[in-house]
Amino acid sequence: MEKNTLSAENRRKSILSAVLGVICIIYVLPVVAVVINSFKVNTFVKTNTFDLPRGEMWAGFTNFIKGMTFGNYPFWKSAMYSALITVLSTALILLFTSMAAWYIARVNSKFCKLVYYLCVFSMVVPFQMVMFTLSKTADKLHLNTPWTIPIVYLGFGAGLAIFMFVGFVKSIPIEIEEAASIDGCGPLRTYFSVVFPMLRPTMISVGILEIMWVWNDYLLPVLVLDINEYRTIPIHIQYLKGSYGTVDLGATMALILMSIIPVIIFYLACQKYIIKGVAAGAVKG
């Protein structure tokens, strides 16, 4: 009897593993395709998409060199703008939303509840629904440069970030802040000396989520930024076409690979926190 249930358990496990394995392969396949094709001569990308870059198909690093030098917009500039926007946006989001969340979690007023539910609501509004009015507004307010677009990101990122921070702040015993206020802290001091350090785990997970989102985002910068002047990496890749609209797929793949490498390295370095953070947000929210 014992044995039977055990083997049933085993069988269930192996079936589950197989199913999850297949799902995993389906997920990874596009990425693998990108890697393979980035080393392939352009003409073979379309015809032999899933072949390994053997023999005459092998292009070495020419695709990468071409991708970075092709066109009239220097790749380093795109990379710089991408990095600038990502870092600025994430910093803004972390600072402002953690402060706001602290207030929302601790002050029990109707206003706070309203703001909180607005934030939660904003998470379910798809970007495509507001993108037209948003890009118009951003233009009007001169938020259309890499230095100001982080404000737009702040608006979009605030929902999830506040949701996660509020969940976490609520799990911190309020006595610690009360002790701080007795020990001689005003609100600002309490925030920076006591609350901020305690929020670190959530800071890391929110930071990672926001960095991955902003770095990979295509639609918002393409709508808001003046693309003749400012391009992020995703935009740069999109514009890797010759003047007659011919697309160099090999070079495109090479650039895509280059743009995801930082994210992958980053992800591996912080993996522990990502999983923790997502789980924390889910449970405590």
Binding site: I176, E178, A179, S181, D183, C185, G186
Partner: peptide, 20 residues
């Protein structure tokens, strides 16, 4: 008067130490 200006100190049941 704000707590910090009352010249008092408090010990909480949950200790309320600064964890970091």
């Amino acid at each position: 008067v704000a707590p910090k200006d009352r010249d008092i100190a408090m010990v909480f049941q949950s200790y309320a130490l600064y964890p970091h």
